[in-house]
Lab assay of single mutants.
Amino acid sequence: MQRVNMIMAESPGLITICLLGYLLSAECTVFLDHENANKILNRPKRYNSGKLEEFVQGNLERECMEEKCSFEEAREVFENTERTTEFWKQYVDGDQCESNPCLNGGSCKDDINSYECWCPFGFEGKNCELDVTCNIKNGRCEQFCKNSADNKVVCSCTEGYRLAENQKSCEPAVPFPCGRVSVSQTSKLTRAETVFPDVDYVNSTEAETILDNITQSTQSFNDFTRVVGGEDAKPGQFPWQVVLNGKVDAFCGGSIVNEKWIVTAAHCVETGVKITVVAGEHNIEETEHTEQKRNVIRIIPHHNYNAAINKYNHDIALLELDEPLVLNSYVTPICIADKEYTNIFLKFGSGYVSGWGRVFHKGRSALVLQYLRVPLVDRATCLRSTKFTIYNNMFCAGFHEGGRDSCQGDSGGPHVTEVEGTSFLTGIISWGEECAMKGKYGIYTKVSRYVNWIKEKTKLT
Rank of each mutant, 00 (worst) to 15 (best):
L327T: 05
R373E: 07
V228G: 05
N343L: 04
R162Q: 08
T290R: 10
P12E: 08
K457G: 05
I7R: 14
K455A: 06
C128F: 01
M394G: 03
N5E: 08
P172A: 11
G21I: 15
S187Y: 11
N328W: 01
G253A: 14
G253K: 09
A26F: 05
D131M: 09
Y115K: 02
K446G: 09
R191G: 13
E259S: 09
D111N: 08
R449E: 11
E66C: 03
S156F: 10
W118T: 02
E73M: 04
V199M: 11
V353M: 04
N104E: 02
F251W: 08
P239F: 01
E66V: 05
D212V: 12
G58Y: 04
I390E: 05
G236R: 05
Q90G: 11
G409C: 12
T426D: 00
V451D: 01
V359Q: 14
N100H: 11
T287M: 13
K39G: 12
G357N: 08
G179K: 01
C141M: 00
L130A: 08
S204L: 14
V368L: 10
C97E: 00
T342E: 04
V273S: 09
W453K: 00
D110K: 10
K455Q: 08
H303G: 07
E61H: 09
V277M: 03
I309P: 04
W88V: 15
F176D: 02
N135S: 11
S430E: 03
W118F: 03
P120E: 04
G106W: 00
G413C: 09
T426I: 01
F224E: 06
D322R: 03
K362F: 05
K137I: 05
D111G: 08
P235R: 10
T218D: 07
Q219I: 10
C396N: 02
E434R: 05
G229N: 07
E72P: 14
V277E: 00
S365D: 11
Q237L: 09
K89W: 05
G351Q: 03
L321V: 05
C435Y: 03
N147S: 10
V174W: 05
E98L: 12
A149H: 11
T458F: 01
R379V: 09
I112V: 15
I284M: 06
E116Y: 02
E165V: 12
E420A: 15
C178L: 01
K339G: 07
L460A: 07
W453Q: 00
Q237N: 08
H361S: 13
F424E: 01
F348R: 09
C178T: 01
N100K: 09
R43E: 07
K89E: 05
V174S: 09
E340H: 15
T218H: 08
V154Q: 14
E73Q: 08
L318R: 00
M6T: 14
A308Y: 12
W431I: 07
E259H: 06
P375S: 14
T422V: 09
S350R: 14
I390D: 08
C145P: 01
C128D: 00
T271S: 09
A250I: 07
P44Y: 10
K438L: 12
T29N: 15
S204A: 05
G160I: 01
D200A: 12
F31L: 15
E165F: 07
N100A: 05
S70I: 05
K168M: 13
I300R: 03
G229W: 14
G106C: 01
T16E: 04
E323K: 13
L130I: 14
V273Q: 05
G280Q: 02
G357D: 10
D315I: 00
A265S: 10
P197T: 12
L52V: 05
V368K: 15
A37H: 12
A26S: 10
I336H: 00
L14I: 12
I15H: 04
S114N: 08
H302K: 02
Y47F: 13
S220T: 08
E434K: 14
M65Q: 12
G179A: 01
M6F: 12
D95V: 05
K126E: 09
N113D: 14
L372F: 14
E79T: 15
Q185H: 13
V257I: 04
D315W: 01
E270V: 12
G357R: 15
T194Y: 13
R449Q: 12
K438C: 07
S99L: 09
H361Y: 12
E171G: 05
A9Y: 12
H282V: 11
N151E: 07
V174A: 08
Y330F: 13
K260V: 04
A173I: 12
I275A: 04
V451C: 07
N42C: 04
E73W: 04
S148N: 12
K188R: 07
A337N: 00
W261Q: 00
H361W: 07
D200L: 11
L367Q: 13
P177F: 01
Q143V: 02
L103R: 09
V154N: 08
R364M: 09
E323G: 04
V359Y: 12
G427P: 00
C407S: 04
T271R: 14
V248R: 13
D223N: 10
